[in-house]
Write a protein that binds this DNA or RNA. Structure first.
Length: 858
DNA sequence: GCAAGGTC
């Protein structure tokens, strides 16, 4: 029997499609990567009985990058990234082992049906899949017969079956347009990012951003925020005047009227109208009109709308919202949360979905009423052909979802109920008045039926004060009429919800990537999120955008992406050659880049105003090994040490702080050793600022502290302070933190494991000898006479922290250690342990720490 | 260390 491999874009779709095509009779198993499943069933394909294997990838299989040596920022001129630097496709997520997985499943298959999403990215993934599997597939059927593409526009029985019965071929041109987009984004983004980062970071000490990035999506996104900032800055308030009239008729029927001219910008003119109005003490009712109005129920929910509401009403950022939504999805509470579609599929079980919500006390009343009277037909929305709109999938309670999870679920559910509810109906009454020659009016609203606003009360009609019943010809007495002076007010900072709308409108990013871009400009410190999720640009963000405006406004305008995409579209339509379009676009941006580099001083002029030169930043901390003067510690991101005399900058580990370390010096370069610490309770280790960037030994890499240094005799090195193999990770060594007393501890030099031991000991030292049982270095401990925990009042003891029974109660975390050892099956997994032992050249590394531990603790 | 696009 022949086998047909079918591949979808994500595991959830593979499952849905397999269920439809197998009519629910498929068997499922997990693939070797643990992320993808394989669903198998027997069916018919092109007139023969075959075995179907439906599986999926997880988005892109491959991603584009420069070949290794072009990723060295110090050795590569960013200009080379436009043409010289070759690119290669790497596995997008090596952990998933996607190529291997696909090959294992494709081996022995005769046909492949590609069920990737029906957009350009999906078309591109088709070819990534084909590149992986074609070498291992059976060659029995003709090449033309092997590969098929299913084109579907929604995940419904009819659509999926139609697609299966009407298979086509993958579209090479569409895939190529994505290849071109990837290469352009990579080359342009990286070239500009590296250039500006290096240029400005080398010059200013307080930029407070470890990366000064540029990208065709993130930069225009920032542009929107700065544009609003500029409007606020350049806003000049204007004074205007308004006629305000208060009238009454009988008791309790006092009304404030709106002037039909709204406002005037000239005081004299306003005064004239006031005088004209004041000729009468009465307000005549000219007309009374009543109109029934409706407020439409919402369309079905898609991702972007969910993100907008989450930001503006729930105060949850897009990135966070998507994380919560994904959790709700994988737990089965809501449908797939990444969709552009706002139209329910024809066979969508609206009633069934609604019925699940009858038990929830919060909205049971509305739901039951709706089921009783019958649901309303949802409004027509847009079917983008990707996934159904976001809906609840089963009932939930606040307790089981947690705070934010519940708030999002509650919104999604209320939105869903609203889409099948009636519109909100209200009566709008307008009364037109005349006072003297001036016209005024007053509007009142009364609710006819709340409709969907019963479940979305925040959209309910604001009921203004009831307006009196009256008719044409009635007169009211003017209580007060006056000219009021007001000022126009500036716009506020852009809200996140407004930004999402702008990005969507200009085609910046996609539903899946919009949260990423917004997150980027926050993390890079270009904008900060203020109260009410308003986005306020920082000095850095403002200077960058103004700098682009000065040199080449296209770099920041939202049109930059759409212009490129227009060209790319020609590739996908087969109207332009892939190579030519790519070359042409690269040429243009290469010129833009060189122009930008040549004009960088004009952006620099703006930088100078807001930021301080690196030599003027930071506090003197430790001495330079070359000139022996004090270097300055710059705390702003990226934190570093700068020697203004030598004009050298030394990088430091990030996400922590640096302290002085007793004026000790590195024996290799004479630089003063500093102490890095991750926080009060975290780990710390000494490091030499010079060795950190210039590894002194061949077996060391950039970015290593003294706790990884293989110096044979220095008192700070791994060799002197290393105790034994880490209890958690494969490659790390637990190293004594010599300055941690009296709360002594050892910390892994690779992972985050910290082991506390010998609290209040007076001295803790690593001894020369090793443990016979586990090969760990012995530790010599010295306690105070009065408080020693050692047996028989001993003050000193030397032993193995893992094996010595005397130390058993003095080493913390050993229960975690033991659990860990047993959890992992003790020594059973130790086969690969020996891997870097000899190579790292650590003579004190135990042979088999885990086995020793397991034996000891059992 | 960099982009943007998929998705886990």
């Amino acid at each position: 029997m022949r086998t047909v491999l079918m591949v979808a874009e994500k595991p959830s779709l593979a499952q849905s499609i397999a269920k439809i095509l197998s009519k629910g009779s498929c068997t499922s198993r997990k693939g070797l990567n643990g992320a993808c499943s394989v669903h198998e069933y027997t069916g018919s394909f092109q007139g023969q009985t075959v075995r179907f294997k439906m599986t999926s990838v997880c988005g892109h299989v491959m991603s584009l990058d420069f070949i290794g040596k072009y990723n060295n920022w110090d050795k590569v001129d960013p200009a080379e990234l436009f043409s010289k630097a070759p690119t290669e496709k790497k596995e997008a997520n090596p952990k998933l082992n996607m190529v291997k997985f696909l090959q294992v499943e494709a081996k022995g298959c005769d046909y492949v049906v590609l069920w990737l999403d029906c957009d350009k990215e999906g078309e591109n993934i088709c070819f990534e899949v084909l590149d992986a599997i074609q070498p291992v597939m059976n060659k029995g059927v003709g090449k033309d017969q092997t590969v098929h593409r299913a084109k579907f526009s929604s995940i419904t029985d009819t659509d999926i079956w139609n697609a299966m019965n009407c298979l086509g071929k993958p579209n090479r041109n569409e895939a190529l347009s994505v290849d071109a987009r990837q290469e352009l984004d990579l080359r342009i983004g990286c070239a500009f990012t590296r250039f500006q980062t290096k240029y400005f970071q080398g010059k200013y000490g307080n930029l407070d951003s470890s990366l000064i990035s540029f990208g065709p999506c993130q930069t225009p996104t920032l542009g929107f925020c700065v544009e609003r900032h500029d409007k606020i800055q350049s806003f000049k308030p204007e004074t205007y005047w308004v006629l305000q009239a208060k009238v009454f008729k009988g008791k309790d029927n006092s009304l404030t009227l709106d002037w039909n001219r709204v406002r005037v910008f000239d005081r004299e003119v306003g005064q004239m109208f006031l005088n004209l109005a004041k000729t009468s003490r009465e307000a005549q009712v000219e007309s009374v009109s009543k109109k029934e109005k409706t407020k439409q129920r919402p369309q079905a929910l898609n991702t972007v709308e969910m993100l907008r509401v989450a930001s503006s009403a729930l105060g949850m950022g897009p990135q966070h919202t998507m994380q919560i939504a994904e959790r709700l999805y994988t737990q089965g509470y809501i449908s797939y949360p990444r969709t552009e579609t706002t139209h329910y599929p024809e066979n969508f079980d609206l009633k069934g979905t609604l019925k699940q919500q009858t038990s929830n006390p919060v909205w049971a009343e509305e739901v039951n009423a709706l089921l009783l009277t019958g649901i309303n037909r949802p409004r027509k929305g847009n079917d983008a052909g990707d996934h159904p709109p976001i809906t609840p999938m089963r009932a939930a309670t606040e307790g089981e979802l947690g705070s934010d999870g519940w708030r999002l679920y509650e919104y999604i559910t209320r939105h869903f109920i609203a889409t099948v509810s009636q519109d909100c109906k209200y009566l709008q009454t307008t009364i037109d008045f005349v006072i003297g020659t001036e016209a005024f009016s007053c509007i009142g609203k009364t609710l006819i039926s709340p409709g969907y606003t019963a479940v979305m009360p925040w959209q309910g009609i604001a009921l203004e004060e009831a307006i009196p019943v009256c008719e044409r010809g009635d007169t009211f007495t003017v209580d007060e009429i006056k000219l009021v002076e007001r000022q126009t007010s500036p716009p506020d900072y852009l809200t996140e919800a407004e930004l999402i709308t702008l990005m969507e409108k200009h085609g910046i990013g996609t539903d899946a990537s919009i949260p990423v871009h917004i997150n980027n400009i926050c993390q890079r410190n270009y904008v900060t999120v203020e109260n009410g999720r308003k986005l306020k640009p920082t000095n850095l963000g403002i200077v960058l955008v103004h700098g682009y405006y000065k040199t080449d406004a296209e770099l920041v305008l939202p049109t930059i992406r759409s212009a490129v995409e227009k060209q790319l579209n020609l590739i996908s339509l087969g109207k332009a050659n892939y190579q030519q379009v790519l070359q042409h676009a690269l040429d243009i941006f290469k010129r833009k880049f060189h122009y930008f580099v040549d004009s960088i001083t004009s952006m620099d002029e703006l930088m100078e105003v807001s930021f301080s030169p690196i030599a003027a930043t930071g506090k003197p901390l430790s001495r330079c090994g070359k000139c022996h003067r004090f270097m300055k510690y710059i705390q702003a991101k990226p934190s570093r040490l700068h020697c203004s005399h030598c004009d050298e900058t030394y990088s430091l580990p990030q996400n922590g702080a640096i302290k002085l370390n007793k004026e000790l010096r590195c024996p290799l370069d004479d630089f003063e050793i500093v102490l890095w610490t991750s926080g009060a309770r975290g780990k710390s280790y000494p490091l030499c600022p010079y060795c950190f960037s210039n590894p002194p030994f061949r077996d060391m890499k950039k970015g290593m502290g003294c706790n990884e240094c293989t110096h044979p005799s220095c008192q700070h090195s791994l060799n002197s302070l290393g105790i034994g193999q880490c209890v958690e990770c494969d490659s790390g060594v637990l190293v004594l933190d010599p300055l941690s007393g009296p709360k002594w501890r050892m910390a892994c030099n690779k992972c985050n494991v910290v082991v506390h031991f010998f609290e209040h000991a007076h001295k803790v030292q690593v001894a020369q000898d090793s443990c016979d049982a586990c090969d760990a270095s012995l530790v010599a401990v010295d306690f105070n006479k009065t408080s020693t925990p050692l047996p028989a009042g001993e003050t000193q003891h030397t032993g193995c922290v893992f094996c010595d029974p005397v130390f058993q109660d003095l080493v913390e975390l050993k229960h975690a250690t033991m659990r860990h050892a047993m959890h992992r099956g003790g020594g059973a997994r130790r086969g690969g342990r020996g891997r870097g032992r000899g190579r790292r050249g650590n003579p004190k590394k135990p042979k088999d720490k885990m086995a020793a531990l397991a034996a000891y603790f059992v």
